[in-house]
């Protein structure tokens, strides 16, 4: 019963929230559709935390997405032990960087009084969910090798079955607890997306790449 809820109902609820509330927030509260910058309050730790978190986690997310979208091609790519090992070691290295970056960002938010003052409970909930997701991912990568291949035959078909509106729950229920926590928590993050600063995931300032240059004049004396 619980597994039916977690793997056949909750993912749809999470997606419905993400799309429904996300669109509502975009059209009726557009100025909140971002994550507030805290760079002016503190920038040194932010650089290390933000860079170490964002670049690795985006690459890891893309790897999950590509394996889900092109399972056959991904299987061919990993059909050689050396390639498989290199990909797994690289993924684990990136995940360790992401964990370190996230840890720094959390410490920064907790230790810096000005930042703590502007942090909301939801910020903390999101950060803890992200920490749980990264930690379980590392645990899986290290103890249940090789996730990059068995993912193609367990979680990926489950995700496809969700898209076909015919969830194959048993693909997930036989997996170890840590994998199930990782999968369910992923959809918890999807559900949190429209309510939190996570919306910045789809708010990329791409126009900065071609905007005209700006000159900042700082107290020029005449």
């Amino acid at each position: 019963m619980m597994s039916t809820f977690l793997y056949a109902i909750f993912p749809y609820l999470a997606l419905a929230l993400a799309v429904g509330v996300g669109l509502y927030r975009y059209f009726f509260d557009r100025f909140s559709w971002s994550s507030q910058s805290s760079q002016l309050l503190e920038s040194r730790v932010l650089y290390w935390g933000s860079v170490s978190w964002h670049y690795p986690i985006v690459i890891i997310l893309l790897a999950h997405l590509l394996a889900f979208l092109f399972p056959t091609g991904w299987g061919v790519l990993l059909g050689r032990p050396l390639r498989l090992y290199l990909l797994e070691a690289t993924g684990l290295a990136l995940a360790l960087c992401a964990l370190a970056g996230l840890g720094l960002l959390m410490l920064r938010r907790a230790m810096h009084s000005q930042l703590a003052a502007v942090s909301t409970p939801l910020d903390w909930i999101v950060l803890f969910c992200l920490l749980l997701q990264t930690a379980t991912g590392i645990l899986i990568a290290f103890t249940l090798r090789w996730g990059s291949v068995w993912y193609l035959h367990t979680a990926a078909p489950w995700l496809w079955s969700l898209l076909r509106l015919n969830p194959e729950v048993q693909l997930m229920t036989v997996l170890p607890l840590v994998v199930q926590v990782h999968a369910v928590n992923a959809f918890v993050l999807v559900a949190l997306f429209p309510f939190s600063r996570l919306v910045h995931l789809v708010s990329i300032p791409i126009t900065y790449l071609w905007r005209p240059p700006q000159v900042t004049i700082w107290q020029r004396r005449s």
Partner: peptide, 8 residues
Amino acid sequence: GLAGGASF
């Protein structure tokens, strides 16, 4: 090789 150490 190194990938021989699968552990699931």
